[in-house]
Amino acid sequence: MITYVCLGILILFVAVKSAVYMKHRKHTPSSDELDLKLLSLINQKSDRHD
């Protein structure tokens, strides 16, 4: 019984993790977007504190 429960949990675990990875894949930022993000984060705040 415990065996089947554990196997069920394992299947759920792998399924959920795979679903999360697939979801992340759809919203992955490109290198250009990452660069713009970093520069906008640095410059929006640093201008105020400069």
Partner: peptide, 30 residues
């Protein structure tokens, strides 16, 4: 199966994680 999925998704996880890091560590980076 999990290992296979992780290998395929690694190139997409890294940029996502970088974006999260930039947002979380913004004060520290500045």
């Amino acid at each position: 199966l999990l290992w296979f999925v992780q290998r395929r998704m690694l190139p997409f996880e890294v940029p996502s994680e970088m974006e999260t890091l930039f947002e979380q560590e913004q004060p520290r980076i500045i």
